[in-house]
């Protein structure tokens, strides 16, 4: 599903953010990528979204080699990859419903499909009743659920989550992670970048630890060890 071969990314001279990295993630996997800030986790997400180009090496996602992907093909590629961020990135002037529907409008789904699909996915994340609310009226956990619903509404094959619990309290963080696990059980490949040790250790998933752009450990049912 995701393959990195000898991938490096430098922002200038000095230590590269990602340093000759090889990685293989299969379809249906749930993977934590852990590490302190500056370990290259966020760069990895950006490379996978083709927001950044690798300095060297090849990246293959969902059968497509990103290095060879033409600019005009990027939108179509991104439709197959759902993404959630630490800061939720919701549209503040639009309701919960419109935020989720937005992802469908972007890919030009007809209105009748949107009307059916958005309530479905809002039910999945447990926010069906709050569809009329605005982001400012929601708690952090609820906002992240909306972001998740938006990421899932187009049924992506892969879900990338960049510090999804970074702004949430422990209880809410746990709920969001349960939701991600549930989504994974429905067949979506999930990659979660985090430095939340409690969460990682509670879920017993594959854990890839990074430090200074290099993978230092990669364990099935792993743990996030203190460095």
């Amino acid at each position: 599903m995701i393959t990195l071969r000898n991938v490096s990314k430098s922002y200038g001279k000095g230590q590269p953010a990602i340093d000759h990295m090889d990685l293989q993630i299969d379809k249906g996997e749930f993977v934590f990528v852990v590490g302190n800030s500056g370990s290259g986790k966020s760069t990895l997400i950006k490379l996978l979204l083709k927001e950044l180009e690798p300095t060297e090496g090849t990246i293959e996602v969902n059968g497509q080699v990103l290095n060879k992907l033409k600019r005009r093909k990027i939108p179509k590629y991104r439709r197959g990859v759902g993404v959630v961020f630490q800061d939720f990135r919701l549209l503040k002037d639009r309701s919960v419903y419109e935020n989720v529907a937005f992802a469908q409008r972007v890919i030009e789904r007809p209105n009748r499909v949107i009307k059916k699909r958005v309530p479905e996915v809002l039910t999945l994340v447990g926010l069906a009743e709050k569809y009329k609310s605005y982001p400012r009226e929601l708690s952090g956990g609820e906002q992240q659920r909306v972001a998740l619903a938006r990421a899932l509404v187009n049924r992506p094959d892969i879900l990338l989550a960049d510090e999804p619990t970074g702004n949430l309290d422990p209880k809410t963080s746990f709920e969001i992670m349960k939701l991600l696990e549930e989504i994974n059980e429905r067949g979506t490949t999930v990659l979660v970048v985090t430095h939340n040790r409690e969460i990682v250790n509670a879920f017993k998933k594959r854990v890839i630890a990074m430090k200074k752009g290099v993978i230092v450990s990669d364990e099935q049912e792993g743990e996030y060890h203190a460095n």
Partner: peptide, 15 residues
Amino acid sequence: EEIGIMKLIGATNGF
């Protein structure tokens, strides 16, 4: 910000 989000979700240039 909205345009950034649109792009990440996979909006085409035209959209």
